[in-house]
């Protein structure tokens, strides 16, 4: 019974369906993009009809939004928050700053490339992305989850050494906790 391929696919299908339709989003405003979220969540664009709703703590959240630039100081907290979240978990990178540094491409205290430090499932481009593109990003993530391709967390576990090396290059004297998942 447990090795039955069909039974497993049905379970997986139900799991992916519920996961994609119930995204608890950690409202952690790191950069200027956080100002787009109230518009996304309130009456005009209403992300709750897609099942996206805010979670107050990382323990309850599925989705981490990196809304804009990350200074190295914020990166420390983001990594800690990301590691506190429970599997399965997804990350959306917001705006050009997370993609290639954006307008902070030569700033000494903001990182340029987010997916070297934590795995990113979906990028939303723009500076800043409007609520329409944010919702398009949610939809994109939902289709990835439905296809079972949003496996950033698994990637992070597999390549933890590589990520840790990159993180330690920026965060020199910061104790990175060794979590046992």
């Amino acid at each position: 019974m447990y090795n039955d391929k069909n039974a497993q696919t049905i379970v997986e299908y139900i799991q992916n369906f519920t996961r994609k339709n119930s995204l608890f989003m950690l409202a952690y405003g790191t950069g200027c993009g956080a100002i787009e979220l109230p518009a996304t969540l309130t009456s005009r664009y209403d992300a709750e009809r897609l099942g996206v709703r805010g979670a107050a703590t990382p323990r309850q959240a599925d989705l981490l939004l990196i809304t804009g630039y990350l200074s190295t100081k914020t990166l420390k907290r983001v990594i800690r928050v990301y590691e506190q979240m429970q599997d399965p978990k997804y990350v959306i990178g917001f705006g050009s700053c997370t993609i290639n540094g954006g307008m902070y491409w030569d700033s000494y205290n903001t990182i340029k490339l987010l997916d070297k430090y934590i795995p990113v499932d979906v990028y939303i481009n723009g500076c800043m992305p409007r609520p329409e593109s944010v919702i398009a990003g949610f939809k994109e993530l939902q289709s990835l989850i439905a296809a079972g391709k949003a496996d950033g967390a698994a990637k992070y576990k597999e390549n933890l050494e590589w990520y840790r090396e990159n993180q330690k290059k920026v965060l020199k004297n910061w104790p990175l906790v060794e979590y046992n998942w």
Binding site: Y108, K169, V170
Partner: peptide, 17 residues
């Protein structure tokens, strides 16, 4: 203090850019 040099040393560049 050469910001660009520091940035190139410390942070990563997106491939193709």
């Amino acid at each position: 203090f050469d910001t660009l040099e520091y940035v190139n040393d410390t942070f990563f560049e997106r491939e193709g850019r």
